[in-house]
């Protein structure tokens, strides 16, 4: 059997399919064997992804530069930005952990947003993609499980409870932007369908 352009392979179970047509708006094309969504009919998906990723990226700058949490106990006052949180393991043997937390919470989420915008930005306004778009999109997919901003948010909630009776806590502007980023990123990921995004990038590159 020869590979033909209308063939699609399920990435989860390897079943071959013929994609007779792109799914209509709101329709999902699922793998016949394992039920994994292979393509979904969202014609505006790429524009939505780029808009949401850009918003999250702008909010991320607020997160890094503004105070995140503030702690008061009578006379003492302590303020922590996300950057300070990340640096909290920076002494001695804990230093690698500091780098890892920085990567999971700031670097990888930002890198992923940047890569997505690089790969799909020109596509969303009907331009020819920038060089290296395919590589950028592939790396963005690889980074997906390692960007842990939303998990950090739950960690914040747990830390708040642990400190609740020790001191008065207040949330800074960075806290709320971070919360927004988590929601925006989740929304953005629902728009992603590997097949649809790759097909769009493919046709745009050939044009």
């Amino acid at each position: 059997m020869r590979a033909s352009p209308d063939m699609v392979c399920c990435p989860v179970c390897d079943a071959l399919h013929h994609l007779t047509r792109e799914p209509a708006t709101g329709e999902k094309a699922r793998c016949i064997r394992c039920g994994t969504v292979i393509a979904n009919g969202k014609p505006q998906a790429i524009l939505h992804i780029v808009v949401l990723a850009s918003t999250a990226l702008v909010l991320m700058t607020i997160v890094v530069f503004y105070p995140f949490l503030e702690l008061r106990t009578g006379v003492f006052d302590s303020r922590a930005s996300v950057f300070e949180t990340v640096m909290s393991f920076s002494q001695g043997i804990m230093a690698p952990l500091s780098i890892a937390v920085a990567a999971f919470v700031i670097v990888l989420p930002v890198a992923r947003l940047g890569l997505l915008i690089w790969a799909l930005g020109p596509l969303s306004v009907d331009r020819t993609p920038w060089p290296g778009a395919a590589r950028a999109l592939r790396y963005a997919e690889i980074l997906k499980p390692w960007a842990m901003a939303e998990i950090f948010m739950v960690g914040v909630a747990v830390a708040l409870v642990k400190l609740a009776d020790l001191a008065t806590l207040s949330m800074g502007p960075a806290f709320w932007s971070f919360a927004a980023i988590v929601i925006i990123t989740a929304l953005k990921d629902t728009q992603m369908s590997k097949h649809s995004v790759w097909t769009a990038l493919d046709t745009a590159t050939r044009r």
Binding site: V86, M87, L97, I151, F152
Partner: peptide, 12 residues
Amino acid sequence: IDVFVVAILVAL
């Protein structure tokens, strides 16, 4: 989660 909780507590 727990690693992040530790990081936040240590920073604050």
